[in-house]
Write a protein that binds this DNA or RNA. Structure first.
Lengths: 216, 216
DNA sequence: ACCTGGTTGTGAATCGATTCACATGGGGCG
DNA sequence: CGCCCCATGTGAATCGATTCACAACCAGGT
């Protein structure tokens, strides 16, 4: 398949959400134009994104909401459920465990690992924090397909290496550190500090009248 | 100033982190090459990013670590502290409040708002959950410059509108919904479900041998 | 003072993603 | 049936970001 850009995949997720809503509103058909408006992109963008995977619409009519929704669901691999292991039982790890939204979308957090003896054995809802030493076995057993890194930055690469070694090929990284992994492993990063800094930059630009390129 | 792309700003944040580490390691100088390696980008990218703001290096020598760090700090607007208000005292809101990392980088969560009477008045660490009705006054008083939306999706746009009306120009949105704001307001989105879906897509591609463009 | 090895800063070239624009196909109505 | 309006799917054009490649520069050694 011609390579699909990350932006396209992200937009597909967005379209999927809009379609869920539109479906709930009882609408049968939707045009690329209206789908686009709800996500703040152009209609050509919507059509181009979809065209990478097939042609799902009907000229003159638009897209059948339920059908397109099912197609995107299949494209995104959401027809099955995915098991997720979280490493790090700190604040982010706990928030992930407490949040039910992922289960609704097909992602089940089936295990939590930590390194600190103080954490191991602790119960969190229905789950027990496991010793990180057990990670390779659990992964080998096929207990999960996605690994989440919710540790402090210094431990992140180490945990990533453990995931990779255990055969995990999808990693969600919350640690503010670039991870190096083989190219058949996919990493997505969520870095809230970076988002705050990005806002800080934008605000400083606006208010500060930031100086131009100071040469010399 | 020639428009700075979001990617450039994000990379600056990354460089800043690397410089903190390198500084802690006691190194005086660093080349664009080595700075690049640690973030998995090219040295030309590093130099180009920096060149938008000035020329901070010395040919033949590289960059002075402490100096470059200070420059990026200034560029990102991190020389001052920023006050943050969080709307939504659910799991994400609580995780943000519990995490100390933001304070270290200069972001103080000074207020938490919620709509539900059951939440209002509740104490969270040193803070008390406030009635959302008080948001405009607090913002008008200049109590905070950045707003975080940690509500369920249906409430997100409404909260964004309230922030905008109150003069807030930087919003961090955790709700899985596109926000529409005037163009002088900056929004950054953190959407964990979307990241999971992006991983799901990648994994499905790998294992499934996903079908090609099905025409007709 | 000159040469050598190293590194920046940046215009030009390349690459990839977005947008344009239109031929193609579809339904409804008279 | 024939006409009109509508909306998709997609090649071509555009736009923006990344990478290339090299002149300019720096320090240290001889």
């Amino acid at each position: 398949m011609t390579h699909i850009s990350e932006s396209t995949v992200r937009r597909l997720s967005h379209y999927y959400r809009v379609l869920e809503e539109v479906d709930a509103e009882g609408k049968r058909m939707i045009s690329s134009q209206r789908l686009a408006e709800r996500e703040g992109v152009t209609s050509a963008q919507v059509r181009k994104d979809l065209s990478y995977f097939g042609s799902f619409g009907r000229r003159g009519l638009g897209y059948n909401v339920a059908h397109l929704r099912a197609e995107i669901r299949a494209i995104l691999g959401l027809e099955r459920r995915w098991n997720v292991a979280v490493v790090g039982a700190g604040h982010i790890g706990l928030a992930l465990l407490a949040y039910r939204g992922f289960e609704e979308q097909g992602f089940d957090v089936v295990a939590v690992f930590d390194r600190a003896p103080a954490q191991i054995g602790k119960r969190i809802g229905a789950r027990t924090v496991l010793d990180i030493a057990g990670l390779p076995d659990a992964a080998a057993r096929g207990a999960f397909e996605i690994g989440v890194i919710a540790t402090p930055a210094p431990a992140a690469q180490e945990v990533a290496d453990a995931f990779v070694k255990a055969g995990i090929r999808g990693i969600l990284n919350f640690a503010p550190r670039k991870l190096f992994v083989p190219k058949d492993v996919t990493v997505r990063n969520v870095d809230m500090t970076l988002e705050f800094e990005s806002l800080s930059f934008a605000l400083a630009q606006k208010t500060g009248g930031r100086r131009r390129r100071a040469r010399g």
